[in-house]
Write a protein that binds this DNA or RNA. Structure first.
Lengths: 337, 337
DNA sequence: CTGTTAGCGCGTTCAC
DNA sequence: GTGAACGCGCTAACAG
């Protein structure tokens, strides 16, 4: 039962190993008759080529690495699903590097390229430093970024500036003027998540375009949890002049806002409009108005791009920008008159 | 910059490749002085051994396969996180096989072992058939099951009988005698999910131990959706003598029950107690009393067990049973007096 | 078209 | 202790 090799097949079919290899890879022309013989031998022996030997010989690992922070979060799961779907159709395996600490982030971004364990790298959200990019370039390792960017690396981005703008604009369109924003920590994000700055920028821009001055007391920052968002929203709603609408950086935080409103007997959407961001699964269930990102697609497109760049390294970094979509549900309405 | 090999290191250190290999694997005794030299050369050349060549030479793939259905579901994500955490510390990679159809299930369970692409297999929820287990044994492939079981294979199970018992007992302790159960379809689900039968058994056992006769009309079965659960709960609550408490097979279904109560203006927990199962993320938000499974741990323990069995195949299949935890929130209380 | 041979990079016997 | 040779299973380049 122990591994039957290409040599066994060759012997069985009465041909050379080269020929077997050829029919396996469908490469050069092989006469139909000998091809049949080989195929029969393969079938009879239940032969299955060793991917490892193949990789060594090819000098390629036939696997791509995916580095993602907190891959448990719904948004990453959804992206990874997109990656899995496109990679499953290819002959590439993929291995996930889950990052939950800064040390691990650095270890992944620095060790993985040098260890030559992967033919390509997909990095989610964790913007590489210039030095790290230089390292990628030195080792000629194809890299594609998803949900973050770097001028010298191909990337798939969701347009978070536009998304933040879109969310705010929706509130503006409904007639709101006092619009609060409960966001992730703008400064202290250990990984330097870029969407945080972008959505904030979109929010500011929409306000500015509408001629509404930004009020610092309407902008609250806290860690990405429901509890913290609830606390921040509580502060907002007990302001002397509370906002009539709140934009939350994520759906998770929007639920915290909703909870705060409930605590204070503030009716949604009659007295308060709430809009989230992400459109995670629960959001539909709870009828949350939100901004949908095409997460699955961002993973799938990223994987496609990577596969393509492994075969044919581009001279210029590619950029794919995915739009966001407003999903109107039941938590937004015109302000009380 | 192109791959520096063990030969380069040997040359640089003025030793043979064998010696380099020895210090790399810390195996046989190497004189301290030459070891230093080798280490220095490795450092200077930034050498990192090729895992692929190592695998070929070793005859082991150094990767484990993880087969999981619907890996997007929260419960699998959580389990996979446990797997990832323990495998990240080992020298094993892992590759995920996501199963969403019966065809794919069969392909994975049958092809993966024969292709010798993995040194071990972790299978979640998808009970293997006897024939498949025989195949594992023939190829000497270590396999560990998580969330399912087979008499000849090591497995990590969550004690769903105890969980069902615990949920029911909690209701009993509060003083309830009329306890309904909204469950998943007991008859064969396509993949043969075992927890369905187990939780039901726990429910029956707790009732029996409390000396309360089982009332068939209190047990409703339907597909695993909120809508269906709502319908079933509606039936229960409009019975001539309705239950004062309902145990739902899953949190999702518990929300359907909650909704039915709301429809009928039945107050929870004053007039009706509701307990779910799973403790999914949204449950905390909605204050649902539920049974928490140690999902992360089940993945971690499964991976540990597999690693161990790869090194040292056990004569007897091991069994690890994880307990469940009651999470008391606001949907259960004593029955109306 | 097809058989033969030389590596791919590493672990592992062997002699020294 | 340590160096040299062989083999893991496969691909690719070279003859024929």
């Amino acid at each position: 039962m122990a591994s039957v090799t290409i040599r066994d097949v060759a012997k069985r079919a009465g041909v050379g190993v080269g020929t077997v290899s050829r029919v396996l890879n469908g490469s050069t022309a092989v006469s139909d008759s000998t091809r049949k013989k080989v195929l029969v031998a393969i079938e009879e022996l239940e032969y299955s080529p060793s991917p490892i030997a193949r990789r060594l010989s090819l000098g390629r690992t036939m696997t791509v690495g995916v580095i993602a922070p907190f891959f448990i979060r719904p948004s990453y799961v959804e992206r990874l699903r997109g990656v899995e779907a496109t990679l499953a159709d290819s002959e590439y395996d993929f291995i996930i590097y889950n990052v939950e600490t800064l040390a691990r982030r650095n270890a992944c971004l620095q060790d993985v390229p040098r260890q030559e364990r992967v033919d390509g790298l997909l990095i989610m959200t964790l913007s590489p430093t210039d030095a790290e990019v230089t390292q990628f370039e030195r080792t000629h390792l194809p890299v594609v970024l998803v949900d973050c960017a770097h001028p010298r690396v191909s990337h798939v981005m969701i347009d978070d500036v536009a998304g933040g703008y879109q969310a705010t604009q929706h509130l503006l369109d409904l007639g709101h003027c006092r619009i609060g924003y409960v966001s992730d920590l703008l400064q202290e994000s250990p990984f330097g998540f870029r969407p945080v700055a972008d959505r904030y920028q979109g929010y500011r821009q929409a306000l500015a375009d509408a001629g509404i001055p930004f009020r610092p007391e309407y902008h609250r920052q806290g860690e990405l949890s429901r509890r913290e968002a609830r606390r921040l929203a509580h502060e907002l709603l007990t302001l002397p002049e509370p906002p009539t609408a709140i934009f939350a950086y994520s759906d998770t935080q929007a639920f915290g806002v909703l909870r705060a409103a409930q605590d204070l007997a503030v009716k949604v959407p009659e007295q308060l409009s709430v809009i989230g961001y992400d459109d995670i699964e629960i959001s539909e269930f709870l009828h949350l108005t939100t901004i949908r990102q095409h997460l699955y697609e961002s993973g799938a497109r990223g994987a496609e791009l990577l596969l393509q760049e492994i075969v044919d390294p581009p001279s210029m970094p590619q950029e794919i920008v995915l739009p966001t979509t407003l999903v109107e549900r039941d938590t937004t309405a015109p302000p009380p008159s």
